[in-house]
């Protein structure tokens, strides 16, 4: 240690080295991490595409010549088109109420909004079966009035909305809280109407956070399996979403078609990840705190 105190040596050199791991240790740790991630995370993604194309491009395309595949794609898009905007409106309302005002019980309200994230997907679907199933709470009333919720579009939308419920709100609440109310108050004092302030002051401030949360919400809405599987009834060509179609094909040992359809969802996941990373990199300061890394 004596060289630290010698005037000729560079004093910072020794502590800086001792404050980190040696080059060899670094190399080993990086190697272990990258290998682990490659094996556990990237290999499954790779497997989706290799399996999808294992019998050639013709067999891959055959999977999309089936009308059932198209009806699954249509249903998934329909569900996302309803569920995502619903959660955007809810997220905007919730974050406006929670971030711009002070009232008691706020922490409890945020916890309740987050609740769906800690419920198992299967249970998320089950609660609607308990309500609307033929043996459920409202089951006989619904049958008497000829209303179909379970094993139909409304049930699938409800289950999807439930599992994606917190996405937009939990991104926008901290973001709006960080931004405070000063800008809105200034605009209001200058005579702008409330709606005008929201459109021209608040919305531009949260647009990247909103886009970020919509991306994640949409990925989950299109990919949800457990909750939707419980409420869908698996009626081919009618109530099968893309993930359920993947399951049915797989269980029929139609592996190539199953992985071909699954590759659609894998591409969606990749696009989501790329856009998400781009937003985190480019607009780190305009996303909720703690997301930037």
């Amino acid at each position: 240690m004596s060289e630290i105190f010698s005037p000729i040596s560079v004093p910072a050199a020794k502590p800086a080295q001792a404050a980190s791991e040696g080059a060899a240790t670094r190399g080993v740790l990086i190697g272990i991490s990258v290998t682990f991630l490659a094996l556990f995370l990237v290999l499954p993604l790779f497997a989706v595409f290799t399996q999808a194309f294992s019998k050639g491009i013709g067999a891959f395309l055959d999977a999309f010549r089936e009308p059932d595949a198209w009806s699954a794609i249509r249903l998934t898009l329909t569900v996302a088109v309803i569920a995502v905007p619903f959660n955007v409106v809810f997220g905007l309302a919730a974050s406006w109420a929670i971030a711009k005002f002070e009232f008691p019980g706020k922490a409890l309200l945020i916890t309740l909004i987050d609740l769906p994230f800690s419920v198992s997907p299967v249970v998320s679907g089950m609660i609607y079966v308990l309500l609307f199933g033929s043996q459920g709470l409202f089951g006989s009333w619904l049958i008497d009035h000829g209303i179909q919720i379970l094993f139909a579009l409304p049930g699938i939308v409800l289950a999807t909305v439930f599992v994606t419920f917190p996405f937009v709100a939990r991104e926008l609440i901290p973001l709006m809280q960080e931004q405070g109310t000063a800008e809105e108050e200034a605009a209001l004092t200058l005579g702008a109407s409330g709606l005008h302030v929201f459109r021209t002051v608040t919305l531009p401030n949260i647009r990247w956070g909103l886009l970020y949360s919509v991306l994640l919400c949409n990925a989950r809405a299109m990919g949800e399996f457990g909750a939707v599987s419980v409420v869908s009834g698996h009626i081919r060509g009618l109530t099968n979403t893309i993930p359920l179609h993947v399951e049915i094909l797989y269980n029929e040992y139609n592996f190539v078609a199953s992985f071909a359809v699954a590759s659609l969802l894998a591409v969606l996941a990749l696009i989501t990840l790329v856009l998400k990373s781009f937003l985190e990199w480019r607009f780190a300061g305009e996303l909720a705190h703690g997301r930037a890394h």
């Binding site: 995370l41 989706v48 399996f225 993947v246 399951e247 996941a269 998400k276 990373s277 890394h293």
Partner: peptide, 20 residues
């Protein structure tokens, strides 16, 4: 590598399931 960590968040569970 950092972006890849979020793969399980983005990849639908059924797709991960059949791949595994």
């Amino acid at each position: 590598v950092d972006a890849a960590v979020d793969l399980p968040f983005a990849l639908p569970t059924a797709v991960a399931g059949i791949a595994l």
